[in-house]
């Protein structure tokens, strides 16, 4: 190293990984919450808005999600990525509001059921920037057959059951199930293709 090289400075919060930010947040530093908000508020708010079609409610959900991250211990880094947790929680709370039924418990039960997956990076886009994630997702979704994309999006954003989706699209229940599951498997494949 050149003797005049400046000492490495600690990374600014905005450059730290989610895991590091979460650790700082748990140490009680509210600026870590701010940094996570800057990173994920578009995603959380955009998803809540997509599900609820109401900006005030989307705002409420966004607030709930970030405050829950701050106050509660429901997120466990060993069980999955923070962004996935935020998204899944946002979807669950938004659909709760939409349908006035409690799916939150269901989500938390499922979240706890997921075991620790040591050494594996479950989120295929974990190392990819937010902008790239958006770009990859749009491309991967565009590659899916129309019906697979459609059933996947309806099930995901509207929280409809498979039989409700079948009724809506006037197609057999078996087809909805197969297409949704195939759609998800193909989406994973496309995303993995992008990063390899």
């Amino acid at each position: 190293m050149h003797p005049d090289s400046p000492k490495p400075e600690p990374l600014p919060l905005s450059a730290q990984t989610d895991a590091d930010l979460f650790a700082v947040l748990k140490a009680g530093r509210v600026e870590a919450l701010g940094a996570l908000y800057d990173r994920y508020s578009n995603l959380v708010y955009g998803l809540a808005l997509r599900v609820l079609s109401n900006s005030e409610e989307a705002e409420d959900v966004t607030q709930e999600i970030f405050l829950a991250l701050w106050h509660k211990d429901t997120y466990n880094p060993a069980r999955g990525s923070l962004s996935s947790f935020l998204v899944t929680m946002t979807r669950s709370r938004s659909i709760d509001r939409l349908r006035s039924r409690n799916t939150k418990l269901k989500f938390l039960q499922r979240w706890r059921r997921i075991g620790t997956t040591e050494g594996s990076v479950a989120n295929p886009l974990e190392q990819v920037s937010m902008n790239e994630r958006s770009q990859f997702l749009r491309e991967a979704l565009a590659r899916l057959p129309d019906l697979e994309r459609q059933v996947l999006e309806i099930a995901y954003y509207e929280g409809l059951s498979q039989s409700e989706v079948a009724k809506r699209l006037n197609i057999p229940l078996g087809t909805v199930k197969t297409r949704t599951r195939q759609g998800l498997l193909k989406l994973r494949q496309h995303l993995q293709d992008f990063i390899q």
């Binding site: 990525s81 886009l125 994973r188």
Partner: peptide
């Protein structure tokens, strides 16, 4: 776990919305 992560990536495909 991985498929749930993939599912949770879906909203990245939404148009960008600023709160």
């Amino acid at each position: 776990n991985q498929l749930q992560e993939v599912l949770a990536l879906l909203p990245y495909g939404l148009p960008r919305q600023e709160p």
